[in-house]
């Protein structure tokens, strides 16, 4: 994809391929600093540590493409991880516990979908409220302390290395990405999502079953968020009510960097993958350069505002030029 674009004018590349170019820039910049950035350990860790966010971003992309937004992903992630650990600690077999956690995500997605799609409320404020609610649930379940899993097998769910090399977490991430890319590109549901996000009324009068389709997008987002939560809890072997605190904002900006727009109807799962990896790379590079963590927070905040602002600005220019 990169090769064909490089021959085109620079402005075109900048507008279409922001994330890969920026990633390239970071890779080149890091060549000039003596840091452990270019070690296989760091690069594998980079993929590993961003896997959970990638999984969340996939479902988030589907909702965004369908013209909605899901700010409850952080809450779903936290609670499902805690549910999995609590169930396993109470003696339920791991597969069943994981299944129940993911089912929980689906139910939350369904509630979000019902309220926003069928009842026509604003998705961002409803899912924001849902996020607050779920954070409360997580705190109540753990009394705001981290909980560890008693069963040592649970850790293997994410940390077991296939062929002694690839952690299962990365494998799950890759499978999720492939499935979502396939859903958005090659299924009628995926194409309908683009149509609904592009223009809800047109999609409705074109005979698309808008209500169930858009609700399903929310369910998918809930499922991926729950899956990510379970994998995160397994990866660090603990559930904590603060994990999902800023996830929604982080994911939203990463997805927008990748090229999916808040307006709906534009974007794709692969683009979101690039966006998340870019922000992951950025914070990794910051860490390697030993930048103070609060300055990092400031830079990431400014960066997020800048990216979202550019997304809005691009649409404003387009509106005015028509």
């Amino acid at each position: 994809m990169m090769n064909t674009k490089i021959t085109e004018p620079i402005t075109r590349i900048l507008s279409a391929q922001k994330a890969p170019l920026a990633m390239l820039l970071i890779f080149i910049t890091m060549l000039f600093f003596k840091t452990p950035f270019y070690t296989s350990y760091n690069l594998i860790d980079l993929v590993n540590s961003n896997s959970t966010l990638l999984i969340v971003a996939m479902g988030f992309t589907v909702v965004l493409v369908a013209g909605g937004v899901d700010l409850s992903v952080g809450g779903v992630m936290t609670v499902s991880g805690i549910i999995a650990i609590e169930l396993i600690n109470s003696g339920i077999a791991i597969p069943i516990a994981v299944l129940i956690s993911i089912l929980f995500g689906a139910v939350i997605g369904m509630i979000n979908g019902y309220l926003t799609v069928y009842q026509k409320t604003e998705p961002f404020i409803i899912t924001l409220g849902m996020g607050v609610l779920l954070t409360g649930v997580a705190q109540q379940l753990t009394t705001a302390r981290p909980v560890a899993c008693d069963n040592p097998d649970f850790q293997n769910l994410a940390n077991y290395k296939l062929f002694g090399l690839v952690p299962v977490l990365v494998l799950v991430m890759i499978v999720t990405v492939i499935v979502i890319v396939w859903i958005l590109r090659s299924t009628s549901f995926g194409r309908n999502c683009y149509a609904i996000g592009g223009d809800y009324e047109v999609a409705k009068y074109s005979g698309i079953n808008v209500l169930p389709t858009k609700t399903l997008a929310f369910v998918i987002s809930g499922v991926t968020a729950a899956l990510a939560g379970v994998m995160l809890s397994s990866w660090v072997n603990s559930g904590n009510s603060i994990y999902g605190d800023t996830t929604a904002l982080y994911i939203a900006s990463a997805v927008v960097v990748g090229g999916t727009s808040f307006a709906g109807g534009i974007g794709g799962a692969f683009k979101s993958l690039l966006g998340v990896m870019f922000i992951g790379l950025l914070s990794n590079a910051f860490n390697m350069l030993n930048i103070d963590s609060y300055i990092q927070q400031l830079l990431v905040g400014l960066f997020i505002v800048g990216i979202i602002w550019l997304d809005c600005y691009g649409r404003k220019v387009k509106r005015e030029s028509v």
């Binding site: 309220l115 009842q119 409320t121 604003e122 404020i125 409803i126 924001l128 409220g129 849902m130 996020g131 607050v132 609610l133 779920l134 954070t135 409360g136 649930v137 705190q139 109540q140 009394t143 705001a144």
Partner: peptide, 16 residues
Amino acid sequence: YIQYMLRGAILILAIW
């Protein structure tokens, strides 16, 4: 914690 939960629930309920 439950109060936090209720806050979210009431926000959703009120808007709905």
